[in-house]
C-alpha cells in the first residue's frame, strides 16, 4: 500500500486528493475530492498527466489571437506543441471555436476569440 497526496487542478477549488495504490501500482481509492471529476483527474495524474495548452498564434493582420487545445494533451508534449503552434498563422475572419490546427497531440487547436 502506498498513498500519494495530489492537489486537484480540475477547478479553482484545488481539493487535496489522497490516492491509495497497491504494490502493483493499481489505484485502490481516491479520497478528498468534493466532486466526481477528482477521481479521473487523480488516475490520469499518476498514470499519464495531461494539461490544456493555452497560448496565442500570429494572424494575417499582425495582431495576436488567443488559442487553446480543445482537450488536454500529454504534459510532456507541451513544449513540442508550442513549437507547432508558433508556426500557425490564423487567416482573416477566424471566429471563436474555429479549428486552426487539427490533431495536435490528440487535440485540436481552436481560436478562443474572434479575430477583429
Amino acid at each position: 500500500m502506498k498513498t500519494t497526496e495530489l492537489t486537484c487542478i480540475v477547478c479553482p477549488m484545488g481539493c487535496t486528493l489522497t490516492v491509495t495504490r497497491n504494490e502493483e501500482g493499481e489505484i485502490l481509492s481516491v479520497e478528498g475530492n468534493t466532486c466526481p471529476r477528482g477521481v479521473p483527474y487523480a488516475k490520469n495524474e499518476l498514470l499519464h498527466p495531461v494539461r490544456t495548452l493555452t497560448t496565442t498564434v500570429k494572424t494575417a493582420n499582425g495582431k495576436l489571437l488567443p488559442v487553446k487545445t480543445d482537450k488536454p494533451i500529454p504534459k510532456e508534449s507541451l513544449f513540442a506543441a508550442m513549437e507547432k503552434v508558433n508556426r500557425v498563422v490564423a487567416p482573416e475572419g477566424v471566429k471563436i471555436g474555429d479549428v486552426l490546427l487539427a490533431d495536435l497531440f490528440g487535440a485540436n487547436l481552436v481560436a478562443t476569440a474572434d479575430l477583429r
Binding site: 488567443p66 471563436i96 478562443t112 476569440a113
Partner: peptide
C-alpha cells in the same frame, strides 16, 4: 472551463 476571452465573449 473557459479561457478569459471566451468568458468575456
Amino acid at each position: 472551463e473557459l479561457t478569459g476571452p471566451e468568458y468575456a465573449a
